[in-house]
Amino acid sequence: MLKIQNLSKVYEDGTRALTDVSFTVPEGEFVAVIGLSGSGKSTLLRCINRLIEPSSGDIWWDDVHLSHVTGEELRRARRRIGMIFQHFNLVDRSTVLTNVLSGRLGYVNPIASILGRFPEEDVQRAYASLQRVGIRDKAQNRADELSGGQRQRVGIARALMQEPGLVLADEPVASLDPALAHSIMRHLQQINREDGITVLCSLHFLDLVQQYSTRAIALNQGKLVFDGAPHEIDDAKFVEIYGREAERIG
């Protein structure tokens, strides 16, 4: 269970990106995070795995005080939290296999991994992950030789290597065409359903939210303005989330 209590983030330049956000995510849920651009979605997701330091508030994941762990403990917590990025964030010049294996770095012997050696079972696991997202045959290609959809699948395979209990996906389909978007979302749904991995996924399109998520939370200027089932977002709620000028599409 992920518990977020009174989370606030003020950037060094004074921007208030999150104000007093609290919510709880039971294990196994698929939560969509929605809101206008700049509403604080990325900030929220990055506070959870501490790529961004929260200014105040608490984040608990089961019995780990995520907002306050440091050093070794933080790394041990992070290795069980996968992250998927809008721009994939693959290492272009490395092979797909190396990119996927890097998801294992938190587990393996640091010195061996620095020398580029991974245990055989991890290599097998990497192939299995690639198989699962359907690009096992690309394992030896360089990451920059892949198409956008394939690259995002590498991102998912990398996250799977972490044996995550939680996956944070920051607009995973915003750089993909609609057909690919559905395929990526289905992969996320699959790992959520089959592996029971909790997914927190920021999205821009309401139809995706309603099709894939079990619950939605909405941010507006850093404040939580909605927390409920996706189908509860009616026109009134929509205006509250996206503002008066927004028009509902799809």
């Binding site: 041990r76 992250m83 770095l105 938190g106 991994s113 990398r158």
Partner: peptide, 19 residues
């Protein structure tokens, strides 16, 4: 971006530089 991603997997500082 890649550095952010590798750090997010729980890699230590040296691993993140290497990978």
């Amino acid at each position: 971006g890649p550095r952010e991603a590798v750090n997010a997997t729980g890699a230590n500082a040296v691993q993140s530089v290497v990978y």
